[in-house]
C-alpha cells in the first residue's frame, strides 16, 4: 500500500492482494454493523456495546436499551461509506486500485478499522500477551484462527497509523511530541 496526501485528500494505492484484504474487512464490518446489538456475538457486544458505562452512570434497563440503540445507530451510520469505499476498490484487473478519501472519510475509516480490530481481538481472545508478540516463533504457537486474527489486527493497525500520520493535526507523531 502506498499512501499520500494529494489536494487535501488522502490517496491509498492498493495492490490486488491489499484490495482483496480490505474488501473482506469492509464486507465483514458491514455485516456486523447491520446486526442489532443483541445479535452480535456476545464477546464482540461486550466490547462494542459494553454496558459498563451505563451501569456506572446508574441508567435503568430502559435507559440502557435506548443508549445502546443510539450507539448502534452511530456505528451503522458508517455502512453507506463502507459500501462506497468497497465499490471504489472493486477488482477489475491486476492493476493497482485507488481509494481516495476526504479528511472526514479518513477519520471515519480509522474508527471503522479500529472497530474491526476490537472485534477480531474479542472473537479470538487476543489480549495483552498476544499484542506484545514480537517474534515469528511466538506467532507460530498461536492457534491458526488466532494467528489470522492477530495478523488482521496488526495490519489494520498499520493502516490506521498511516492514515493518522497523513491527516492534518499531527495525530500520528505523538512519540516525537512526547519526547
Amino acid at each position: 500500500m502506498k499512501a499520500s496526501r494529494e489536494n487535501d485528500q488522502i490517496v491509498l494505492r492498493l495492490a490486488p492482494s491489499e484490495v482483496q484484504f480490505l474488501r473482506r474487512i469492509f464486507a465483514s464490518i458491514i455485516r456486523q454493523y447491520l446486526l442489532k446489538p443483541d445479535e452480535v456475538h456476545p464477546s464482540v457486544a461486550d466490547v462494542w456495546y459494553s454496558k459498563r458505562g451505563c451501569v456506572s452512570a446508574g441508567l435503568n434497563e430502559e435507559q440502557t436499551r435506548e443508549w445502546i440503540e443510539n450507539l448502534h445507530n452511530l456505528k451503522s451510520a458508517n455502512v453507506a461509506a463502507l459500501r462506497r469505499w468497497r465499490r471504489s476498490i472493486a477488482p477489475h484487473d491486476e492493476t493497482v486500485a485507488t481509494l481516495v478519501l476526504s479528511d472526514e472519510d479518513s477519520q471515519a475509516l480509522v474508527t471503522v478499522l479500529n472497530d474491526h480490530r476490537l472485534m477480531c481481538a474479542a472473537r479470538h481472545n487476543i489480549g495483552e500477551e498476544e499484542m506484545d508478540i514480537r517474534t515469528i516463533a511466538q506467532v507460530e504457537k498461536l492457534r491458526p484462527r488466532q494467528r489470522a486474527a492477530l495478523m488482521d489486527v496488526m495490519f489494520l493497525g498499520a493502516i490506521i497509523e498511516t492514515l493518522l500520520a497523513l491527516l492534518p493535526g499531527g495525530y500520528g507523531d505523538w512519540p516525537l511530541y512526547a519526547q
Binding site: 477519520q107 481481538a121 487476543i126 495483552e128 499484542m131 490506521i160 493518522l164 495525530y171 505523538w174 511530541y177
Partner: peptide, 23 residues
C-alpha cells in the same frame, strides 16, 4: 490492550477537543 496509542490521542483530540499536548 488493543487500541493504539496514536488512535487514542486522535480520539481525545476529535471528541474532547483536546490539543495534542493534553491528549
Amino acid at each position: 490492550p488493543v487500541n493504539l496509542m496514536t488512535y487514542v490521542v486522535f480520539v481525545f483530540m476529535r471528541v474532547l477537543g483536546f490539543n495534542k499536548e493534553k491528549a
